[in-house]
Design a binder for these strands. Structure first.
Ligand SMILES: [Zn+2]
Ligand SMILES: [Zn+2]
Ligand SMILES: [Zn+2]
Ligand SMILES: [Zn+2]
Lengths: 153, 153
DNA sequence: GTTATGCTTGATAATGATAATCACTTATGG
DNA sequence: CCATAAGTGATTATCATTATCAAGCATAAC
């Protein structure tokens, strides 16, 4: 079920689409919008291919990242997380809730003016990664509820 | 040689300024603008306190980060890096050169409009971290020099 | 002083994510 | 079929960080 997008990139690298690689890619596509770690992918992959080895998962994730099929990043530390690349050029950014640790994606791209400023100073900007640390609306609401004693009890 | 800034934060946490902690802080102050890993700090600390243990360095860096004396982040992965916090509230951002891996600091803060936009959506933004990946002017110049054959030889 | 209490330290072991190794299997092309 | 290379699973190695633990050193009571 891999799309042309992924197919082309694999062929360009002359890599075979084995069942293991297909399983990993399927998992990533089934979890679009989430950011999975290698062990999470491995756990899910075991349910589809019980004999798959953890090393293959690591190798596949690494390879797909080098082909720019997956984007590799680190939110917390000591652990990489992967997600499907945006097919259309520019990637997105992330808000990480300081309370529930949920990761919300931001599509706004108001960084162009900053990039332009720096290009004028002689840099050639290739990519950027923005992480905003915040409290999400849900958590803020929950906090309000908690501090408002329930009158009915 | 620790400033009032650091002193106050230590006292607030009721922590003693031992010779080991002072050594680590001195190293961080002597390397203002750089981003040191635990082993780099340990190596330098050994020249000042030959008996200092690696565990103490880790503990001290961790403690100083929790007191917001040091800022802890990860540029490459699998390794934390530390730097002194900006005393005046808002922190800075980083440009990482894709060629020489140098880290250049950016003071511009053109992210306010994005933050404002998100606050309107119900988020409470606390902090952000921006990493720009680029080629620095030096590396771009070097590349130009290399591709221009030397006529005089 | 002596003693008790708790913070701090250094050495070392444990942990945990990822990378490397290696023997075995599976395409693929002649 | 045979040769070559790619891919896999199991296992080990690596490396940064954390946990453990006994000893050292304060500070404050006794
Ligand atoms: Zn939240
Ligand atoms: Zn994302
Ligand atoms: Zn450079
Ligand atoms: Zn910095």
């Amino acid at each position: 079920m891999v799309g042309r997008f992924v197919h082309d990139k694999l062929e360009k690298g002359r890599y075979k689409l084995t069942s293991q690689r297909a399983a990993v890619l399927d998992i990533m596509m089934d979890n679009r919008g989430r950011h999975l770690s290698a062990d999470e992918v491995f756990f899910e992959a075991k349910t589809r291919l019980p004999n798959i080895g953890i090393a293959t998962v690591y190798r596949t994730l690494e390879k797909m990242a080098s082909l720019e099929i997956l984007h590799k990043t680190v939110f917390d530390q000591g652990k990489y997380r992967y997600e499907l690349c945006d097919e259309n050029a520019h990637h997105h950014h992330h808000i990480i809730c300081l309370s529930c640790n949920s990761i919300i994606e931001v599509q706004d791209d108001l960084l162009n003016s900053l990039e332009k400023h720096l290009e004028e100073q002689g840099y050639r900007i290739i990519d950027h990664e923005l992480k905003l640390y915040a409290y999400c609306p849900d958590c803020l609401q929950k906090r309000r509820d908690d501090s408002t004693p329930d009158v009915s009890s």
